[in-house]
């Protein structure tokens, strides 16, 4: 009797083990299913309009088939350009502060705030950019969109810069200082140069995320059906086009929304490839 109970417990434990472990395996499979579904539909539906026109022509008026989104592609690039132009220096310099001088209470506070800031919804950042840039200027502009994207990038870049600089072995720094190089030159030309690859990856992550943002652009950069590269005027972006075209009751607009999504994903991938190429190791 005694032995049977023991055996039962043993088999029950064995069975629970197998069941729970296979459940976690199945869950892992389920998790990546949406990923493949999203990719599958984006490629399948997006391929319809993926031709040279899409990259070279402007959107056509309602009811007229064809056309492309060259203005939105250029607009997205301009927007992340402005965002990066403001966000990268601010993020990198504050990250350098955190790693080089941030071992005090103020450093801990900034580190914590940067973490908290990365959790602020992008649409709230959009509202701030609206009150900050659009209200004083009295009209929507690419600049406002760029400012919103910059604010979104800063926490990612700050924290990656800090983490990457911390990974540089301390002996590099000591070697620099032992040669009589001043501290700031050691930081900039030895430590930062060594950490550059990792930092570039962080910057890329920030830029890629910015390229995919829609919410903060809706009422800052607004969108534009015409060609415009003026940063003080509303500007088109791929994401806003996807949003507007997906809501529209026209079949060809919906299809173009899929194409825009495909192009957006391709743009983000190309961006990462370019960065990988630039930052690849020379040794």
């Amino acid at each position: 009797m005694e032995i049977t109970t023991k055996h039962l417990t043993y088999y029950r434990r064995k069975a629970t083990n197998v069941i729970m472990l296979s459940f976690s395996f199945i869950a892992a499979i389920i998790t990546i299913v949406p990923l493949f579904l999203v990719f599958y539909y984006t490629v399948k539906e997006g391929a319809t309009y993926l031709n040279l026109d899409f990259f070279t022509k402007l959107p056509t008026p309602i009811g007229e088939p064809g056309g492309g989104m060259v203005n939105a592609i250029v607009g997205t690039l301009i927007l992340i350009g402005i965002g990066g132009g403001i966000g990268i220096p601010v993020g990198m310099l504050s990250g350098i502060y955190l790693s080089e001088f941030g071992k005090n209470k103020f450093g801990a506070l900034v580190r914590f705030l940067a973490d908290v800031m990365s959790g602020i919804p992008s649409i709230v950042v959009g509202v701030v950019a609206y009150t900050l840039v659009v209200l004083p200027m009295k009209h929507f502009s690419a600049l406002a969109g760029g400012v919103a994207l910059a604010i979104l990038m800063i926490p990612t870049i700050t924290r990656t810069t800090e983490e990457m600089i911390k990974l540089v072995p301390h002996s590099y720094r000591e070697a620099g200082l032992a040669l009589g190089i001043s501290k700031w030159k050691t930081s900039l030309f030895i430590v930062l140069k060594t950490a550059w690859k990792g930092i570039a990856t962080g910057i890329l992550l920030g830029l890629a995320r910015a390229a995919g943002e829609t919410a903060p652009l809706l009422f800052t950069a607004l969108g534009n059906r015409f060609w415009s590269t003026n940063i003080f005027r509303p500007i088109a972006s791929l994401t806003v086009f996807i949003y507007e075209y997906s809501k529209a009751p026209f079949k060809d607009w919906n299809e173009q929304a899929w194409t825009a999504a495909l192009v957006l994903i391709m743009l983000i991938s190309v961006l990462s490839l370019v960065f990988k190429f630039i930052t690849r190791s020379k040794y």
Binding site: I32, L35, T42, G212, T214
Partner: peptide
Amino acid sequence: LLAAIPSVVYGLWGIFV
């Protein structure tokens, strides 16, 4: 990679699928 897909693309997929 799931986290890297822009949310508007999820929305698009949401509407049509």
